[in-house]
Amino acid sequence: MTTELQERPSVDAAPAEPPRHPFLVALGDRVRNLRSRRGMTRKAVAQAADVSERHLANLEYGTGNASILVLLQVAQALHCELSELLGDVTTSSPEWLMIRELLEHRTEADLRRARQSLSELFHAPGSADRARTTRIALIGLRGAGKSTLGQRLADDLGYAFIELSREIEQFAGCSINEIHNLYGTNAYRRYERRALEEAIQIYPEVVIATPGGLVADAANFNLLLQHCYTIWLQADPADHMDRVAAQGDMRPMAASPEAMEDLKRILAGRSAFYAKADLRLNTSDHGSEEQSFRALRQQVREAIGIGV
């Protein structure tokens, strides 16, 4: 009987503390540090955010799984962006914050100049600009004519021609779809980076047909813009769809009954990135492949200083 009493846990023992999620702990640290940086008490922040002081204390301690609206209110009370609360990379140091503040509310033209200046700062000044005019990269959605017009342009200029998608598949040893299905998007982007780096290193004079989604990766797109003269081949959505189908690829239609709307949404989401190109040509504005090629040839030769 005595043994049983000795082994019985005390009724006064504190319950075991549930494990705290590392993200919530880090979030709480950022809230507390921001509050300290602003010189605000917990009570003052709670009042400004219209949440209870206890709720804010739990958030700072890493046990408060707050809704996104509460986090937005706390960010507003601390006079910071929500990204700073969540730990965006541009909030990771004072220098990042000061650079971000300088760029905030700038126009697209100002931001473009800033990006180009930073690219020159961190790379050999002028070297990329001199080489990039003999490396021509065609960007845009599938069906815009990158492969067909790219091959013709390369032949006309006496340059090599490569399709980056084929290079990616050679690196991976399988198709693009298999890369995504087996290894995921991150692996695909790594292969894409390797293929682009090799193309830049090997070919001083080349026309590159790029995958439509390359612009979705900022690092790879920056590399392309730095080392290649880029041309956005555009087309009307219906022409995109018809040309892909004419090549025997029915996936755009088979994938979804709302395929045209999906294509329009993708185009809308990427257009701001495609627009960073040095030139653009809408192939739907020309009646035939031959007319599109002639227009492309003239624009490129004029832009890079080769006689038409």
Rank of each mutant, 00 (worst) to 15 (best):
A114F: 07
T134Y: 05
I139H: 04
L102S: 14
L138K: 01
T133W: 03
R106F: 05
T133C: 04
G143C: 10
G150E: 00
R106T: 11
Q151Y: 02
A137V: 06
L82P: 01
V89E: 11
R130S: 04
E108A: 15
F122I: 08
L82Y: 02
S147W: 00
T90K: 08
L149R: 00
E101G: 12
E108I: 14
E104V: 11
T134F: 04
G145C: 08
A137T: 06
V89F: 13
L141K: 05
R112E: 13
R100D: 11
A109I: 10
Q116D: 10
D110V: 07
A131N: 05
R152E: 00
L103F: 15
L103Q: 15
T107E: 08
D110I: 06
H105C: 10
I136L: 01
L103K: 13
D110K: 10
H105F: 05
A128C: 06
D129T: 10
K146E: 03
L149K: 00
S83E: 08
I139N: 04
V89Y: 13
P125Q: 04
A124T: 15
R100S: 15
L97K: 13
M98V: 14
G145Q: 02
G150P: 00
G143A: 12
S83G: 09
T148D: 05
R142I: 11
L85C: 01
M98Y: 13
M98D: 15
K146R: 09
T90R: 11
H105Q: 12
L103G: 15
L82T: 05
L141Y: 05
E120V: 05
R106H: 11
R100T: 15
L97A: 12
P94R: 07
A131C: 06
G143I: 05
R106G: 06
E120C: 07
V89N: 10
L103D: 14
T90N: 12
G150V: 00
M98R: 15
R130T: 03
T107I: 07
G143R: 05
G140S: 10
R112H: 13
T134M: 08
R142Q: 14
R106N: 12
P125T: 03
L82E: 03
M98N: 15
D88A: 13
S147I: 02
L138M: 07
